[in-house]
Design a protein around this nucleic acid. Sequence first.
DNA 1: TTGTAGGCGTTATCAA
DNA 2: TTGATAACGCCTACAA
Lengths: 353, 353
Amino acid sequence: MKQANSMHVTLQDVARQAGVSAKTVSRVVNNQGEISEDTRVRVQAVIEQLGYRPNYLARSLVSQRSHSLGVVTAGLEHHGPSHTLAGIEQESYKLGYSLLFSLLPEPDVPNIAPVLDNFVARRVDGIIWAVAEIQNNRAWIRPEVLVNLPPIVFLSMAPRAGLSIVAVDNRDGGMQAAQHLIDIGRKKVGMISGPLGWWEARERLAGGRQALEAAGVECSPSLVSEGDWSAASGARCMRQLLERRPDIDAIFAGNDQMALGALGVAHQLGRRIPEDIAVIGFDNIPESDSFWPPLSTIHHQLFEAGCISVNVLQKMIELRLHGRDHAPVLPTILTTSLIVRASTVSVSQLERN
Amino acid sequence: MKQANSMHVTLQDVARQAGVSAKTVSRVVNNQGEISEDTRVRVQAVIEQLGYRPNYLARSLVSQRSHSLGVVTAGLEHHGPSHTLAGIEQESYKLGYSLLFSLLPEPDVPNIAPVLDNFVARRVDGIIWAVAEIQNNRAWIRPEVLVNLPPIVFLSMAPRAGLSIVAVDNRDGGMQAAQHLIDIGRKKVGMISGPLGWWEARERLAGGRQALEAAGVECSPSLVSEGDWSAASGARCMRQLLERRPDIDAIFAGNDQMALGALGVAHQLGRRIPEDIAVIGFDNIPESDSFWPPLSTIHHQLFEAGCISVNVLQKMIELRLHGRDHAPVLPTILTTSLIVRASTVSVSQLERN
DNA sequence: TTGTAGGCGTTATCAA
DNA sequence: TTGATAACGCCTACAA
C-alpha cells in the first residue's frame, strides 16, 4: 500500500488504479509507442482523476537528460544583461528547456567553481555564460576545466579558438558612432569610455579611435575620459573633458547612461546640444528616445544575442548526444546600427529627411 | 564493469576504486556520520582523482527535496522586476537554493498552468510569484489550485487572506510624493499615472489623491492622465495635461521614466523646472539622479523585497517539512522614502539644507 | 566505524 | 499491445 502522507501521486499509483503496468502508463504520458485507444483513454482518465504529475527528476535520472540549461549572468540592473536574459529565456522555453539561473554578485567573482559545480551536480544539458568579460574574469576558461563541463556558449567576448561565442560587434558600433560625428563635421570629439577593464568598453573606444584616425581627426589622450557606465560618472567625465579641452564640439559616450550624465552637464554649463556639442551614446535604451534632447545612439540586438546563444547551445547538445563532439564552432557576431536623433542633428535637419 | 562511455563518475565508481562501500563514500561527501580520518582522507583522494561530482537529481529523488525554488517574473527590462530578481537570487544562493526561472512574455499570460506544471514536475521546494498584478492575471490563485502546489510567496499584490505576500507600500509612497508637492506650496498638481490595469499604478495614484484631498488641494479628473510607464507615454501625458490645464504647477509621475518624458516636454515648451513646474517621480532608478534637473522621487526597496520573499518562503518550506502546514501568514509591507532633488526644490534651497 | 538491503519515480530492454 | 525486470545514482534503516 502506498504511503498516504506522500504528497505526490506516482506512476505506480496510476498503474494500480487503472489495472495496468507502470510502463503502460509511462507510454500514455509520453505519447510513445503503440497503445490501444481503449487503455489509453482509461489510463488518461485515471491520471486526471488522481491528479498525477510526472517527476522530471526521476525521468532525468534515467534518461540522462535534464532538459535544463544553466545561465550565469551579472549586473541584471543594467540594460544589456537583462535583455539578453530575456532572449535566452524565451528561446529556451520554445525549445523545451528550463533555466537554472545564477547571478554573480560582481562580474569578476574570483571563484566561479561553486556555480559550475552546482550546474554539473544538477546535470544541466548546457551552460550559457552571459557575464561580461572584465579584467581576467575568464581566466578559468581552460581546456582541462571545459572538458568536464557540458557544452558552453559564451556571450560577449573576443573570438577564441575552440569556444562557441555570440557577441555584438562593439568595435564596429564604435566606428559607426564616431563616423557619424565626423560626417556632421565635428573636429574635436571627446570620448567618455566605459571602464577599460571591460572588453566591451575597450572595443567601443577602439572603434571610435579607428574611425577618427582614418578620417584624420584629432584623437589624443586628452580627449578621452574613463567612466564606469553610470550616469554620474558620465557627468564627471564630461566636466573633466570640458575643463581640459574647452574646444570640444562632440561627445561619444560608451553607453546611453553616461551620455545622459554628459547631457546634464552640458545643460548646466549652458552649452547647446547639438549646436555647440553633439552627443551620441551606445545601447539605445528605451529612455534614450526621451532624453533632452533625444539621444543619438548605437543600437544592438541583445535580445537576439540571447536567442541565438540558446540555438547554438542546442546544436552543440545534439551533436554531443550523437557522439560527434568538438565540431568546429564559429563565433556569431551581431551587427549594430546607427540611430540618429536630435542630440547630434538639429531638429530642423532631422525633419528635412 | 562500469560503462566506459558514461560521462559521469558515480558514487559506486569511487567506492570500488577506494575499496569501500558506496555508503561510506556518501558519508564522506555529505560530511555526515562518524568516519575514521584514515578512510575519509583516502576516499577524498579518490574523489578528486576521479573527478567525482555528486548527482543532485538522484539525491533529490530520494530525499524528496530539490533545494530549488521556482521564480516567475515578467518585464525584466524594467527596473523593478530585475532588482527584485537580483534580491531573490542572492538570498536563495545564501540559503542553498538554486533558482528555476520562468519569464512570462507578457504580465497577463492567460494560461500559466504550463509554468506551474513544470515547476511541480521538477519538484521545486517553493515558488515565488514575482509578476506584477495586472487586470485579473491573478484569477488563477484559487485554493484548489494552490493545494496541489508547493509553498508560494506572492510579490506586490493587495493583502489577501491565506496568502503569503511581500509588497511595497505604493499607496503611502504616492502620499509622500503628493505631500511633498503640497509642502512646497503647489496648488495644481497634475498626475501621470501608470496603466490603471496595474495594481501598483492604482495604489500610487490613490495615495496621491488621498494626500491632495486631505490637504484640500484640487484633485479633479482633468488633472490626471494615464500613461503606460514608458518615457514616451510620460511625454504624451504631459502635453495633454498642459493643454487641458495650463495652470499646472506640479507633476507627480507614476514612475521615473514617465517623469523623464514629462521633463523633456517641459524643456521643449520652455517651462522652468522647478520654478514653473515641480516634477516628482517614483522608483528612484539610478539614472534619475542625472536627469536634467535631477529628479525628486520615491525610493522603495525592491532588492530587499526579493530577499525577504525568499526568507518567508524558506520558513514556509520548513513548516511544511515539519508537518505544520498552513501556519497563519502575515503580509510584509515595505515602506518607501522621499528623495528630494532639484526637480522640485531649487538648487539654492537644496544647498541651504 | 563500516556495510547490506531496499527504495525514491521513471524509462529501456526484452519477452510474452 | 502489454508486462516483468533491471537499471539510473543516491540515501535511510538497520546490521555487523
